[in-house]
Simulated assay, not measured.
Amino acid sequence: MTGRLMHSSGDTVTFHSDMAGDINVSWSKVKELRSQRQFVVLGKNQRWSWRAIRNVPAGSINVENDKIELKGRGEAEVMPIKETADVLDAETFNREAVQEVNFFRRWTGAASLGLTTVKATQNNYTYTTGVALMRSMPSVAYLPPRNRTTLNFTGSYSRITQRQAQDAPQLPDLKTSIFHGDSERDEYITSRIYLLVGTAFDHNFSQGLDLQQIYGGGVGWTVLKRPNQTLDLKATLQYEKQQFLATSLNANTNLIGSTFSLSYLRKLPFKAVFQQQMQYLPAYNQPSAYSANETNSLTFPVYKRLGFQIGTQDSYLNNPPPVMYPAPINQRNSFQVTSGISYRLK
């Protein structure tokens, strides 16, 4: 069979044939393979060092008798297939592992938008939006991760206006406004453990929260990393400032606390994707000022990059401030269900 050796990871090799397309087979089924293109072979016991990565040998490849022979400028290197972790072409290796890429390139993610309008005795306008962006280096799954940057934003806004009866007391408009934004930078120590710094901003009119700011850093651990699911656990130490709306009594806080979080992603049949994130935020200098959040989303593909997304957002704030009359009492829990059209970004 003629074509191109794409790469291998572990015991699986990917080969592209013009007649058969991409083929994934076990190395044990490959009797012989030859290619004059330049490849890099990474061993299972090879310690990954980004400083010394430019010295990784490259050369043409010859596979025979369950061994890989790499012919470069110096002497040929022979390695048993069972001792190799990854085989990839030198061009991809240099692009992904060595070269610095412009910060504004190689972002992936999705954007969603929902809109509801009702015009009757009451007029109701509801808008929901969300953007989730991620930039991983390298951008290919078969290379060990080096760093990752994430940017997220979700927003929900609703206003109900009511018609006024003649000579009756004026009815106030009803408003809901919930926004969340966060960013995080991960630097990997190993392929599963990383250090992180991040910031988050929250506004929740329903809980009397004008703005909550979080700045912190910590450590993360990728517990599961499989083709169809990933699970990350994170813990941070942070500074947190809470500012409440003018309708509340002076209850602004400055907190030293942590965020303990879980992030889970699962790829389902028919290319559906389920995502879940749970967070618990204790405060050490004011124990009663803890909070918790949970978000869930399920996205179904519709047409090409378009999809339909349904999700829930649950926010708990244990210390909502007391309010000044006639403002209604702030509730501790805020729960919303959202749906809309999503667009997948490459």
Rank of each mutant, 00 (worst) to 15 (best):
L5Q: 01
M6N: 02
M6V: 06
S9G: 05
S17F: 04
G21N: 11
I23M: 12
N24Y: 09
S26I: 02
E32Y: 06
L33C: 03
Q38E: 10
F39A: 00
L42S: 05
N55D: 14
E64T: 13
K67N: 12
G72C: 09
G72D: 04
R73E: 12
A76I: 11
A85V: 03
A85Y: 06
L88E: 08
A90E: 13
T92E: 12
R95D: 13
E96K: 05
N102I: 02
T108I: 10
G109Q: 00
G109E: 02
L113F: 15
G114H: 07
T116R: 11
V118E: 08
Q122A: 10
N123I: 02
N123C: 06
Y125T: 09
Y127V: 15
T128M: 04
G130C: 00
R135D: 02
R146F: 02
F153N: 08
R159S: 10
A165P: 08
Q166I: 14
T176Y: 03
S177M: 08
G181T: 11
S183T: 05
S183G: 15
D186N: 11
S191R: 15
R192M: 03
R192K: 15
I193K: 05
Y194S: 08
L196I: 01
G198K: 04
G198W: 06
N204H: 02
L209R: 06
Q213G: 07
G216R: 07
V223H: 08
L231Y: 09
Q242P: 00
A246N: 14
Y264Q: 10
M278T: 14
Y280G: 07
P282C: 06
Y290R: 04
N293Q: 15
T299G: 04
V302K: 01
K304A: 07
G311M: 02
Q313H: 08
D314W: 11
D314I: 15
P320L: 04
P321K: 00
P321H: 01
P322W: 06
V323A: 13
M324P: 03
N333M: 12
F335H: 04
I341C: 06
S342L: 08
R344V: 14
L345W: 05
